[in-house]
Amino acid sequence: MKTREMICIGCPLGCNLTVKIDGENVEVSGNTCNNGVVYANNEIKNPTRIVTSTVKVLDGDIERVSCKTETAIPKGKIFDCMAEIRKKKVNAPVRIGDVLISDVAGTGINVIATKNIEKEG
């Protein structure tokens, strides 16, 4: 059995949770409401995050286009995702929603542009 401390981010109260993990069994204490239990279960069983960063643009009016994973990816894949983003270069113009990297780090999720970039000049 393992024990983990975490802060629930379900509301501004920010309860300090103590989570006892015994295989599939997750026991939460320190929570004020049921949101704490849901949050802790997600964080233990399948923690995911949306990753935001920037990609190098060639001939753009600015140097970088901001981007995000279209949906949340597994937390453990964040740095693999970043390695692909760092290698990527795109040509201007870029539109919001354009797919910059498809299936990033084998997650099945695309990295898309979050800013419009015009061609320089």
Partner: peptide
């Protein structure tokens, strides 16, 4: 460029530029 904008206004999570 991070997300978390617009939950009240657009009922979805957007990045700043979006």
């Amino acid at each position: 460029i991070h997300n978390g904008f617009g939950l009240h206004t657009f009922k979805e999570e957007l990045t700043g530029p979006e």
